Simulated assay, not measured.
Amino acid sequence: MPAPVNRLKQRLAAGETTHGLWLGLADPYLAEIAATARFDWLLLDGEHAPNDIRSLSAQIGVLQNGPSDIVLRLPDDNPAKIKQALDIGAQTLLVPMIESAAQAQRALAACHYPPNGLRGVGSALARASRFAEIPDYLNTADAQICLIVQVESRAGLAALDDILQIEGLDAVFIGPSDLAADMGHLGNPGHPQVRQAVLEALERINRSGKAAGVLSTDPEFIQACTQAGARFVGVGIDVTVFAHALRQLAARYRNSAESTR
């Protein structure tokens, strides 16, 4: 029996456009609720959300048989963290702050077993092999790993063409928020210069044959990014959706009470 087929990897390779939600609430119960929305994918954020390897593992546990594919964003490109993420069952990783082809190549190597890479062997302990229930896991795992690298700086954009030459890299994600900060527009990813840079990068990625990715909560910009070739498209963040809904509900009744005074 081989490693589970990575549906998202297949869909991106086929050129399909997929839409997903960022999960930053760091709780398996809330992740399970999010799965009922049936996004193409759900991304567990290990970079900015208050997650650790145990909370990420718990969320994968409740999502693994659901309708949405699972993506895990790591805090950095540390090979030890990549190894742990794969062992707890993640098959699609988003690695942030990639600024060179060499850095992207190291991240790719960390995803694969020798002789193709440097991933440590411990699958018998891990959910990835269903705790040794998958007898052929070690020989089949590499083919089902999907690596998305996140370019979010001027240095990363300068290295983009070299990054796109890396064989085996599935997708490149452009991060508008950090790119805006690096371009001198902190807190303003909607600045025209930032938007132009993002759209141009997405077009370059799409032309290379790799999948292009982006995150935005602006419907007009999401449409523009899709037209530019984005196929891995984040369209919302659970934290902001939750906070906005609560504030809107509270304001409705607060305003109603004030109007009756």
Rank of each mutant, 00 (worst) to 15 (best):
Q103L: 08
L118N: 13
E133W: 10
E133F: 06
I60M: 10
C111H: 07
A58P: 06
A181H: 08
D52S: 08
A58Y: 03
C111M: 11
T17C: 09
K81S: 14
G46Q: 00
G61C: 08
V241M: 07
A110L: 00
A35Y: 09
Q223E: 09
A181C: 08
G24W: 07
G89T: 08
E203D: 13
P75V: 14
M97I: 00
N188G: 14
N6F: 00
D161S: 01
A3E: 09
V71T: 04
L179C: 05
L249I: 09
Q150F: 01
F131Y: 14
W22Y: 06
L8T: 02
N206F: 13
F221A: 01
V62F: 12
E258S: 13
V5H: 15
D45G: 11
C146H: 09
R130T: 06
N51E: 14
V149D: 01
V233Q: 02
E47M: 01
E203M: 07
G168H: 04
P114K: 03
K83M: 11
L202M: 11
D77M: 02
L246V: 15
P79A: 01
N116H: 13
V194R: 02
E133D: 12
L93A: 08
L56C: 11
G24L: 02
E16C: 02
Y253E: 04
L63F: 12
A212L: 03
A143V: 06
D142E: 09
S216V: 00
D161F: 02
P135H: 15
L86R: 12
D87W: 00
V239K: 12
E16A: 08
L12R: 00
C225Y: 04
D162N: 02
L179Q: 08
V239E: 07
R204G: 03
E200Q: 14
P4E: 12
L186D: 06
P114S: 04
L199D: 04
E99K: 01
Q223A: 14
L56A: 03
L86C: 10
R73M: 05
A257H: 13
V172R: 00
L25K: 02
G117L: 14
A180R: 08
A85W: 04
R195L: 05
Q103R: 11
V151C: 03
A31G: 04
A124Q: 12
D77H: 07
L23Y: 05
G89M: 05
P189F: 02
I82W: 06
I205G: 02
L63C: 08
L86F: 13
A126D: 12
G120A: 12
N78Y: 03
S57L: 11
S153V: 12
R11E: 11
L21F: 02
Q223N: 14
L93R: 05
M97W: 06
P75C: 15
I237A: 15
N139P: 07
A3R: 11
F39K: 08
H112E: 10
L160D: 01
F242D: 10
P189D: 05
G120D: 01
T18I: 07
V194Q: 03
Q165W: 03
H48C: 03
H112R: 15
P192G: 15
E203V: 10
H19E: 09
H185P: 15
L138T: 09
E220M: 07
N255F: 06
D77G: 13
F173L: 10
R7M: 05
V241H: 06
G184H: 04
A101D: 00
L21E: 02
